[in-house]
Amino acid sequence: MSEQLKVKTMQQFMAEGKQPEILFWVGSAGSYDDRAKKISRAFVKLLNKAHVDFAVLGTEESSTGDVAKRAGNEFLFQMQAMMNIELLNGYEIKRIVTCDPHSFNTLKNEYPSLGGNYDVVHHTQYLKELIDDGRLAISGDGYKGKRITFHDPCYLGRANSVFDAPREVLGKTSAELVEMKRHRKTALCCGAGGAQMFKEPEKGDMDINVLRTKDALETNPNIIATACPYCNTMMTDGIKAHEKEDSVTVLDVAELLANAQNL
């Protein structure tokens, strides 16, 4: 489809006797979901541009078990966690970055007591770090005059108090950042959490993503920025429900940044 991405697996690193700077945990959505795959690709383009020496687990990666845990299947979660921990510890992984706040939360908070201790960062935090360290330069004003509103993912914001990193990264583009009435700690869920992504909603008079998209549309945005593959899907569907898909686009922070660089 497009130019070749440089992606190496941990197995390749091992064969070369090297350790990567970071492990990119792609996650199930980032690996299989058509929309989320684009986010993975955009993030890798940025990593390539910044010459980050990163690895992925490739076919060895398996679900973190997060969604099973939220659904109540602690058994399946811990099976997944222990398998992944065995793999990660075997590779002596120190630092993990992921585009999925759900993987981020569970790897960071719930893996340690099962024996998996890593420095886990969300991709918005990592992008900010790359920019701050001067490794990733953001240029171009493709977003001049555009209004962007950022939707806080529950498992990044409220759950782990990461509010500033995505906003600071977005601030590097030339776009105008506008906040929804409910944002940061009081941001409304997109409706996908707690395994809702994989089931029909319970009976009600409205879908949560439609309500949340309404919040976003009230800011008159050109772009709704997300930082979670599930939020992205929910907000995209919400835009369709409001019949605004012609005037408003939903993009991940990594995609916004990659586009700004014409990557």
Binding site: V26, S31, Y32, G58, E61, S62, S63, A71
Partner: peptide
């Protein structure tokens, strides 16, 4: 969803061997 995770390590019924296909799409 849960049996998918049990069988192929993802909440969707995709082959685990296809996990890295996104790189070349």
């Amino acid at each position: 969803m849960m049996s998918n995770i049990e069988n192929n390590g993802a909440p969707w019924p995709y082959n685990q061997m296809d996990r890295l296909n996104w790189v070349n799409e």
